[in-house]
C-alpha cells in the first residue's frame, strides 16, 4: 500500500542572490518501509522532509504535481488541516532534541500531556502510561528521567524521549532528520534499534534523512540519493554496494576504511551532467 506519493516536487527559496532552486522534480512513493534520503550538505534532503509537512520558512515556494498522503491531498490542505496532520499522522524527529523539547517542563510532564491530549485519559493514567513509554524506549530508570528537565538529560536520552513522544499519536509516517548525527557512536546504535523496534511494532513508515550512506545501508530498506536538489539514484539498501551512479559510488568509496586502508583516498570528480541528466533505473 502506498502511504505517501510525491510527484515532481519542486522547492524554491528567495535569497539575496535571487531564486534558489533547492529541490528539483523529486518523485518517490513511500510504502510501509524504511526509506532513506541521503545526500551531502546543500543537496536538498532536509528541504524535502520539511516540504511534505510545510515546515519551510514563508518565503519558500513549494510546487508538486502530486502530494498524496493516504486519501488526503496535501497540496489542497489549508493551514488548519496541515496542522491536524502534523503530529497526528506524520511526525518529525529533529537532529537536536534540545530544541524540540519544552525547556521549562519536565520530560515526564511533556510526555503525559501528549498522552492525555491524545487518549483523553486522566492525569494519573497519563503518568502511568508515560512511565511505560519511557520503559519502552529502553530508559533504565524511568521514574528518575520523568522528573528531569530537558537540559539535565544527555543527548541520547533526549532523542529517546523524542522518539517516545513522536510515537504516542501512532502516526502513519515518521520523518527523522539526522536523528543520530549529534550522538556519540556507542549511543547511535541503541537509538536506531529503539526506533526500528517501535515503528515495526506500531506499523509506522519511516523517512530517514541522513548524510551517512553506511549507516542507512544497514538500517533502511530503500535509499534515495540526492545531489544538487535532484534524486540521482533510487536503490534497495542491500544493493548499495553495486550502485550504478558515480556519485553514489564516490560517496561509498571516499570513506576511510579500517580493514582496507588506502594511502590516498579516492576523490570524487563531480560532473556537471549530474545536475541535469535524467535518472534512469
Amino acid at each position: 500500500m502506498d502511504v505517501l506519493t510525491v510527484e515532481k516536487l519542486n522547492v524554491t527559496f528567495r535569497t539575496d542572490e535571487g531564486l534558489k532552486h533547492a529541490v528539483r522534480d523529486v518523485s518517490f512513493t513511500l510504502r510501509n518501509e524504511k526509506l532513506a534520503i541521503v545526500g551531502e550538505s546543500g543537496s536538498g534532503k532536509s528541504t524535502v522532509g520539511k516540504a511534505i509537512l510545510r515546515l519551510n520558512p514563508p518565503s519558500t515556494r513549494v510546487t508538486a504535481e502530486k502530494l498524496q498522503f493516504g486519501k488526503t491531498n496535501l497540496l489542497a490542505c489549508n493551514e488548519k488541516e496541515i496542522r491536524a496532520i502534523r503530529g497526528q499522522h506524520i511526525s518529525m524527529i529533529m537532529q537536536d532534541p534540545k530544541f524540540s523539547l519544552n525547556p521549562v517542563m519536565t520530560v515526564g510532564e511533556q510526555i503525559s500531556e501528549a498522552l492525555s491530549v491524545h487518549r483523553n485519559i486522566s492525569r494519573r493514567e497519563a503518568k502511568e502510561a508515560a512511565l511505560e513509554m519511557l520503559k519502552e524506549v529502553s530508559i533504565a530508570d524511568p521514574e528518575h528521567v520523568y522528573s528531569q528537565y530537558p537540559h539535565e538529560i544527555s543527548g541520547g536520552m533526549g532523542q529517546r524521549v523524542m522518539i517516545a513522544m513522536m510515537v504516542i499519536p501512532e502516526p502513519d509516517i515518521i520523518i527523522a532528520d539526522e536523528p543520530t548525527s549529534a550522538l556519540d557512536v556507542s549511543v547511535q546504535q541503541d537509538v536506531l534499534n529503539i526506533l526500528t523496534r517501535l515503528i515495526e511494532k506500531k506499523n509506522i513508515s519511516l523517512i530517514f534523512i541522513s548524510h551517512d550512506l553506511n549507516l542507512v545501508k544497514k538500517f533502511c530498506d530503500r535509499v534515495l540519493v540526492m545531489y544538487g536538489g535532484r534524486v540521482v539514484e533510487s536503490i534497495k539498501a542491500n544493493e548499495l554496494s553495486n550502485a550504478s551512479h558515480p556519485y553514489t559510488r564516490g560517496l561509498m568509496e571516499s570513506l576511510p576504511s579500517l580493514k582496507h586502508r588506502r594511502e590516498t583516498l579516492p576523490v570524487m570528480t563531480r560532473d556537471q551532467n549530474w545536475l541535469t541528466q535524467e535518472y534512469t533505473t
Binding site: 548524510h211 550512506l213 590516498t264 576523490v267 570524487m268
Partner: peptide, 15 residues
C-alpha cells in the same frame, strides 16, 4: 565536512 570533502582533506593532511 561532507564525506567526499573529508577524503580530500585527509589526503591533503597525509601529503
Amino acid at each position: 565536512l561532507d564525506v567526499s570533502v573529508q577524503a580530500e582533506i585527509l589526503n591533503l593532511l597525509t601529503s
